[in-house]
Design a protein around this nucleic acid. Structure first.
Lengths: 107, 107
DNA sequence: CTTATATTTCGATGTTTCTAGAAATACTGT
DNA sequence: ACAGTATTTCTAGAAACATCGAAATATAAG
């Protein structure tokens, strides 16, 4: 997955909100299993409507997906998107001006 | 440089604006030499006040620094900050659920 | 069909951010 | 000191965003 400029900005804007970044972190921790919305709500201690609002943002940009298991909706982070952001920063746009003063690990 | 959670959010929020991301990209391209504000303005074709506003944001979070050369102010991107964001995404917070498994917390 | 749980949508409100013109400031050369 | 160029600060309106209670929707169980 390769991001264009606008996509990269949109994704980073989403991660640029502390609440959403917390959600993503929880979901990364949860891995492919994911985490139910209610569990996220309990851990972050925010109103359900606020949480839902943020999750819908994250879904909209493809950072999070949801699957229903009976009454419970589990959220899962889209690791490939985060990878894509990292790649955008390292390759596409940003980190190439320096190949100096950094301890470089053998590639 | 290691970012805490809030710093990471703040930095990504800054990169999450297309105009600012364009500024940063130009500056990355310019490398350690940097680029004068006026040159950025010409290339992006936006009002000086708007540009200045964004640059001041970028300075405020440490993504950009400025040095004056007579009448011209040159901007320089802080590569270490971008590195830090990448590291935050790969190590601290986000990318570990797949591939190389790092030490995992009790789930 | 009713109740219960899980989650979203709606609607209202307050806050932040973006944009850009006008005025102010900073520096250089004369 | 003055003119000229470069850039920032001031100001303000519009647009976007965050928050959260209340109401609505979805699913399951009795």
């Amino acid at each position: 997955m390769k991001l264009d400029f606008e996509q990269a900005a949109v994704l980073m804007a989403q991660l640029g909100n502390e609440t959403r970044l917390k959600i993503v972190r929880l979901l990364v921790e949860a891995g492919v299993i994911g985490l139910p919305v209610g569990e996220i709500q309990r851990r972050l201690d925010i109103p359900a409507s606020t949480l839902s609002h943020h999750i819908s943002h994250l879904k909209h940009v493809g950072l999070v997906s949801q699957t229903r298991q009976s009454t419970t909706l589990s959220c899962c982070v889209e690791f490939s998107k985060i990878d894509a952001i990292v790649r955008f920063l390292t390759d596409e746009c940003c980190v190439r001006g320096r190949g100096k003063t950094k301890k470089r690990k053998a590639a």
